[in-house]
Simulated assay, not measured.
Amino acid sequence: MKNIWSLFVIGLLTAVLSACSAPAEKPETGEQWSVEKANEWYEDQGVLIGANYTPRTAINQLEMWQEETFDPETIDQELGWAADLGFNSMRVYLHDLAWKADPEGFIQRVEKFLDIAESHDIGIMFVLFDGVWHPYPEIGEQPEPEPHVHNSGWVQGPSIDVLSDTTQWGYLEDYLKDVMGHFSDDERVQVWDIYNEPDNDNERAYGDINLDNKFEHSLGLLKKSFAWAREVNPSQPITSGLWHGDWSDTDSMSEMDIFMVENSDVITFHCYEGPEIMKERIQALKRYDRPMFVTEYMARPRGSTFENELPILMEHNVGAYNWGFVNGKTQTIYPWDSWDKEYTSEPDPWFHDVLRADGTPYKSSEVELIKKYTSEL
């Protein structure tokens, strides 16, 4: 009897010790990271500096990612230029239609892109959905740029037809979970940006054909997308960025902005208004005690320049992604008002972008400043 009891106790202790020493299983459904976890991640990751990236040969996300126009040679060249500046990250837009048309091929192209980025020691922040510019994207051959017009071919994702019809959101869930799930433990991916400017009404360019009640639809998809992402539970942080309005206190913020900051693991925001507003934005968002990234900035005629803002961002340990890298088919050297004002030649100064198509800098002083700060990381 004693022998039986002894064996039982030994077996029980062995089971307990094995359970204690076994690695914790990943929860099936994640939740917003704690402040402590987010800051520990940022301390390990280090400050991220880079640009919003589309190769010069692509007018939009679809041309970048479709098989016929995917351009690894240009991507390799341009990310080499980015590495020369000391950039350690790029923010890159995906598109649901490119995945829907060819899920397996799309994943393979993203893998190839990440291989190229890794070869240059550059990590990636992927953007899954986008509420900006043309509301009716179409798979296949993309249009040629309209001369001298800012982002004349950029497209929203999903289309407003899908956005306004929840019965079609099933494939959006499949897209998010397939892409995020495939790369959920991939160290080449640094951050997932769920939805860019969801409620942008695109008034200047496409206000006459956009949804009148876009805010309600996009808020619904934003909430669903965060829920889907938490089901995937990636090892990387997820976020969606504030882009307009008053963030000085919760009472001043929209329902969408409150949802974003209360559900993002790291805080992201856009600021094209110059150094004083940048300072105000940073101070307002510090109350969340989370790592911060400005995922869009740098519009020279508005006072949002590298000279004015990189010192501020680095002082406050804020990650920074300027809009645009190499001047190409997106034509974002032209300002937003090119949608309603005619331009016939290169603007002075450029609105966005850092390098000309041959890799030479638009302004050598900017490149020197960028290298100064990246060399200190």
Rank of each mutant, 00 (worst) to 15 (best):
R91D: 07
L172T: 09
R91I: 02
T374H: 04
T305M: 01
N308R: 03
A227K: 06
L310S: 03
G245S: 03
N263R: 08
E43R: 12
W247C: 06
Y297C: 10
P291T: 10
G328H: 05
I282C: 14
N52A: 07
H150A: 03
D257G: 15
E118F: 01
F351Y: 15
I4V: 14
D249I: 06
E111M: 03
F113R: 03
A15E: 10
D130M: 08
F129G: 13
L128T: 12
I107G: 06
S304I: 01
T54G: 00
L211C: 09
I107A: 03
E197C: 10
I75K: 09
T374Y: 08
E28W: 05
L211T: 06
P135N: 13
G30R: 02
Y362E: 00
I59R: 12
S304V: 04
P23K: 00
W81G: 07
A82Y: 08
I116E: 08
D178F: 11
M298D: 07
E141N: 09
T344L: 09
V132T: 12
Y171R: 14
D340K: 09
V127T: 13
V367D: 01
S89T: 06
S218D: 07
L222E: 11
K279P: 11
H134K: 12
E118K: 15
Y93D: 14
N233P: 08
S240K: 05
L48I: 05
G207V: 00
Q32R: 03
G131A: 12
A98K: 00
E63M: 10
L176P: 14
N151Y: 08
N88R: 09
A357M: 07
A19E: 11
M278I: 13
Y53Q: 07
Y195L: 03
W339M: 05
D246A: 05
V16Q: 11
L211I: 00
V127F: 06
G207A: 07
N3R: 13
F70S: 02
V110W: 05
T14A: 14
E173R: 15
L310M: 13
Q331D: 06
R230M: 04
G140H: 05
A51V: 01
S21A: 14
Q331Y: 06
T250Q: 14
D199S: 08
F269C: 13
T54F: 09
A205S: 15
W41Y: 06
A51W: 07
K341P: 06
D102K: 09
D246V: 13
E366I: 08
E118L: 02
K177T: 15
I59W: 08
I267E: 14
